[in-house]
Amino acid sequence: MNRVDHIGIAVSSIEHVLPFYEQTLGLKLLKMEEVASQGVKVAFIDGGNIKLELLEPLHKESPVAKFIEKRGEGIHHVAFGVQDIEDRLAELKEKGVKMINESPKQGAGGAMVAFMHPKSSHGVLYELCNKSNTKEDLA
């Protein structure tokens, strides 16, 4: 893993929570977009040394909607940036890591992404993403 790329935070409404991040914490919104393949609307927030990704479900069948229903709003995943996601997936599978995504999918910010199953990572949902989603990329 090259670095922690971002931390995903599940929210019921980006519109409702965004003032906390912008006005209360003084952070800057970088970009918002919908990611149909994941069933979410996302907002990237500049956290200084790391990005925060607010995740709002687009429908009740969205994995994020199910997460919020089961656990409530809060930290959803930690994303690691990787150079070659296909090679990294193969390496993890060889090591016995169960994956939610057997192959990469289109994610937010133009990145290809894949998630590790929390049962293989001690209860934490980890995402692999092959694009940095730097502040410049998101502008």
Rank of each mutant, 00 (worst) to 15 (best):
T24S: 04
T24E: 00
T24W: 00
L25K: 04
L25P: 03
G26F: 01
G26M: 05
L27T: 08
L27W: 08
L27F: 04
K28P: 03
K28Y: 07
K28S: 11
K28M: 08
L29W: 03
L30E: 05
L30C: 05
L30V: 07
K31D: 06
K31S: 10
K31N: 10
K31W: 09
K31L: 11
M32R: 15
M32T: 15
M32D: 12
E33Q: 05
E33L: 08
E33R: 07
E33I: 04
E33D: 07
E33C: 02
E34T: 15
E34V: 14
E34Y: 10
E34M: 12
A36I: 15
A36S: 14
A36V: 15
A36E: 15
A36D: 14
S37A: 13
S37L: 13
S37C: 12
S37Q: 14
S37P: 10
S37M: 12
S37T: 15
Q38K: 11
Q38V: 11
G39C: 03
V40I: 07
V40T: 01
V40C: 01
V40R: 01
K41D: 05
K41C: 09
V42M: 09
V42H: 04
V42E: 06
V42R: 02
V42Y: 02
V42I: 15
V42A: 10
A43W: 05
A43H: 05
A43S: 09
F44D: 05
F44L: 09
F44P: 05
F44M: 10
F44R: 06
I45K: 02
I45M: 07
I45E: 00
I45V: 11
I45G: 03
I45A: 03
I45H: 04
I45F: 02
I45P: 02
D46F: 06
D46R: 03
G47C: 05
G47S: 07
G47T: 08
G47P: 06
G47A: 11
G47H: 07
G47Y: 07
G48Y: 06
G48C: 05
G48E: 01
G48H: 06
N49R: 12
N49Q: 12
N49T: 14
N49S: 13
N49C: 09
N49D: 10
I50Q: 00
I50P: 00
K51S: 11
K51C: 12
K51Y: 12
K51E: 10
K51L: 13
K51F: 13
L52S: 12
L52W: 14
L52G: 12
E53G: 04
E53D: 01
E53P: 05
E53H: 09
E53R: 09
E53N: 00
